[in-house]
Design a protein around this nucleic acid. Structure first.
Lengths: 364, 364
DNA sequence: CTGTTAGCGCTTTCAC
DNA sequence: GTGAAAGCGCTAACAG
């Protein structure tokens, strides 16, 4: 049956067999139209069909047309699995994010997907749910699925990066975004967290706040550290004292944000403003402040980070640092694509912009 | 080279060739460890290895252990592509949603993914961005990727269902959720939109509102029609007149929601309450009402649908109909899984619950 | 310009 | 209990 291009196919009209080797069909789904179906119906070899379909040069114009027409008529769809097996390339990109409840990651994904799908890539999305174990498992699953590249934002708990080292050893293109691994020499797309934070805090100072606290993120995350540094430096620039009591670290969960907020507000000398590491936790601060009847922005100024749509809706509206989320997605995807062509360790940084709203406008 | 189990492999230590047929390696990535690598290192046939790995019965205990140990040592990962090609089964489920900006779809996906990944399925997510053309293209892409099943929620613009008929013809398990196709006889998971809406409107009536408007969704969508019907019937039950001016249909975009809201509020006899088809548009209503200085809930009662987290945060907090989104995801996944075993057209309906908040509490 | 052949990694008969 | 062979759908080297 081999090498003779004889072919037997239950679901096609055009079939002829010589060797009736039992082909176990069992409960499998009927197959889609293949290159072989086309070849037989036209009485030519499947290589020729393949060539025509792939747009090779050395092919008779008439033959090509004939093949293309039939392919169209039968709605032939190449089987990407066969190709993937052969070429060791799936045209699938894995995206690994810590969560996608909030605004940031879904939007990122949309941006990335746009670029990726234009380049012919499908996307497989996994979320680690802020669990290190799940992250490791996801990386494994994605590798097993033979993705051609990986876009990842790590968990707040990730402090061992061996699973990413494996990816790098296998030379699978890898781009980190937002929550990156500084100790790994890989390409990444981040935003200017430091400047964003610096501006945010400077703005609070200009508005007359003097006891500015920082609800920080986990120190494990570079994003958190950079925003913290921006906060520290802005205070320093304006000769404000750095009070360690005013810096509290939370693990990015809402419950913990609430606990930390209470801790700040219960201080003997509570802060008159809080710079929050991101919008979701800034919202929690606002909720608690409102609960306690604290006047925002008069008694407490608040600034968040990321410009989550809620920040414009909540009252008072939340001053925040805008990040070009969609663009981060696009850039990350582009960087990944470039890296598939040629390995780099390029790091890209996108600008942020302070959006001043009511939660921090103490002066006119 | 065939049938002799001779094998040549650049990246493995253990290689021997007889026939030096040029194997084009080109710029392909080095291959992962295969069943053949194991077989050779152990000097046995790949069939035996396969059997051991797959846990067959007829295999010598010593051989099995030997194989399993080596597999572990070399971190052998079966290549799902080979299997997919062979079995015509990818273990990938496609999820097709109209968007995932808002709360609903990301949460749904998380619920579905949980069930699916436990059952050994990966997930491929596509969004149609409320475009019929994109939806059709996505279905095609998902079919081309040979997904084993499909979870879909249609676009507001979808009025031709041929692309789903194709899916059904190919006998690929298909479950609709939330935004379903009533004219297609497929399994689906929905919530009790009618009762939810009915309760919501009845609640408004109990609160003393008498001129209740409905910011409806597109009539193309069954969800919209059911919620509309709930609205209509609740009015009727309480002998309130049905004023067509008080029913406006919008296409689920925020801009259009705003236009329709203005249209309602600009009526010679504006409504004293609005029941919105979902929370995102209820939010838009609130924003406009606040802009105009309309007092909520005194002058205007508002009820939404879906219990988006924002609804608890916005001020006044938004009364809404809660849907068990996560559970819808789980149920849809389960139904899909069941259908892969045995075709059904089962339709499941989950209950809703009215959450009364400030935006509709005119009385105590 | 076209056909033959081999092989991607795996499972599954069919023999022994 | 184990091996040989065939084949899933496709591409590409080689030969004519």
């Amino acid at each position: 049956m081999r090498g003779k291009q004889r072919y037997y196919c239950k679901s096609c009209d055009f079939h002829f067999t010589i060797n009736e080797t039992a082909v176990p069909q069992e409960n499998r789904r009927p197959h889609e139209v293949t290159i072989m179906d086309l070849a037989q119906q036209l009485g030519i070899s499947k290589s020729t069909v393949s060539r025509a379909l792939r747009g090779h040069a050395d092919i008779h114009e008439g033959t090509r047309k004939m093949i293309l027409d039939l392919a169209q008529e039968l709605d032939y769809q190449p089987n990407p699995l066969a190709n993937a097996l052969l070429k060791r390339q799936t045209n699938i990109v894995g995206i690994l994010v810590p969560e996608f409840r909030h605004y940031f990651f879904p939007t990122f994904i949309m941006g990335a997907q746009e670029v990726l799908s234009k380049a012919g890539y499908n996307v497989m999305i996994c979320q680690s749910d802020e669990s290190y174990e799940t992250e490791v498992a996801n990386v494994k699953a994605l590798l097993r699925s033979r993705v051609d590249g990986l876009l990842v934002s790590i968990t707040a708990k990730t402090d061992n990066f061996d699973h990413f080292r494996t990816v790098m050893q296998k030379e699978i293109p890898l781009v980190f975004f937002n929550r990156v691994c500084p100790e790994l020499d890989t390409p990444q797309v981040i935003i200017d967290d430091y400047s964003g934070a610096f501006q945010a805090v400077e703005h609070l100072i200009e508005q007359g706040y003097r006891r500015i606290a920082h609800l920080a993120g986990p120190v494990t995350l570079q994003v958190s550290r950079l925003r913290l540094q921006g906060y520290v430096d802005a205070l320093q620039k304006h000769q404000l004292p750095l009070d360690q009591d005013l810096i509290v670290y939370h693990d990015l969960t809402e419950e913990h944000a609430r606990i930390c907020t209470r801790q700040l507000l219960d201080l003997p000398q509570p802060p008159d403003a809080i710079f929050a590491v991101n919008d979701p936790c800034a919202i929690e601060i606002m909720l608690i402040a409102k609960e306690r009847g604290i006047n925002i922005p008069q008694d407490l100024g608040i600034v968040g980070f990321s410009n989550d749509p809620i920040s414009a809706i909540i009252e008072p509206s939340l001053t925040t640092v805008e990040q070009p989320v969609w663009k981060i997605g696009e850039e990350s995807a582009r960087l990944l694509l470039e890296q598939m062509e040629q390995p780099t360790v390029e790091k890209r940084m996108l600008a942020t912009r302070l959006i001043v709203r009511k939660s921090s406008m103490r002066k006119g």
